[in-house]
């Protein structure tokens, strides 16, 4: 595939950005910390990388500064509403990152049916799996899915077509 070297170069670039802790461009420090804490509950770090390792916050930051500008307000309002809710649900708590993981999950569950949660979830999945040119970092996401990013395959493709395509199953 002609585009492969470019893709590899962009992937290296994104990995560098995550490693060097690049500062967000659109989000302020607090918003970035909130988003990192929240998206890390949506796709948590388990045995495999999660939203944090994928640098989802960088993806969202870049998206809001470029192709998702229309959603800047939704983020401002959504985060404000979530912080207000946090103060009610967990009186005396200092911030979303300062909550326990369990508390953050409860906070997210309480807004699960809101458009902002749907947006945040969609952006998290995108950052987890989108091309590095958007600030995404799909390597860990691909592992979670079992997606083999060869982009060219030969039969057999799966267990059930093995025999039909000349295999043993």
């Amino acid at each position: 595939m002609a585009a492969l070297p470019e893709v590899l170069a962009a992937q290296r670039h994104a990995r560098e950005a995550v490693k060097t802790g690049k500062q967000p461009a659109f989000l302020d420090k607090r918003a970035a910390a909130d988003i990192e804490a929240l998206t890390s509950e949506i796709v948590p770090t388990t045995g495999t990388p999660g939203a944090k390792e994928a640098g989802v916050v960088h993806f969202i930051d870049r998206a809001l500064a470029t192709f998702e500008q229309d959603n800047q307000r939704a983020y401002r309002d959504g985060l404000a509403a979530l912080n207000a809710k946090r103060a009610t649900m967990f009186p005396g708590s200092a911030s979303i990152p300062a909550l326990t993981s369990q508390q953050r999950i409860a906070l997210l569950q309480s807004v699960e049916s809101t458009p902002f949660f749907a947006l945040l979830r969609t952006h998290t999945m995108m950052g987890f799996l989108a091309d590095p040119v958007y600030g995404g970092n799909p390597a860990g996401g691909y592992r979670t899915l079992g997606f083999q990013p060869a982009h060219m395959y030969a039969p057999p493709f799966g267990w059930y077509d093995d025999k039909a395509n000349g295999g043993e199953n």
């Binding site: 509950e41 796709v43 495999t48 691909y142």
Partner: peptide, 25 residues
């Protein structure tokens, strides 16, 4: 991959979090 992450797990199962992550693959 992205479409599947957003829509691929049936609606009666968790759609995010560690349970979702254990199912989506």
């Amino acid at each position: 991959p992205i479409t599947h992450a957003i829509l691929g797990v049936p609606p009666d199962l968790p759609q995010w979090g560690s349970e979702w992550k254990g199912l989506v693959g």
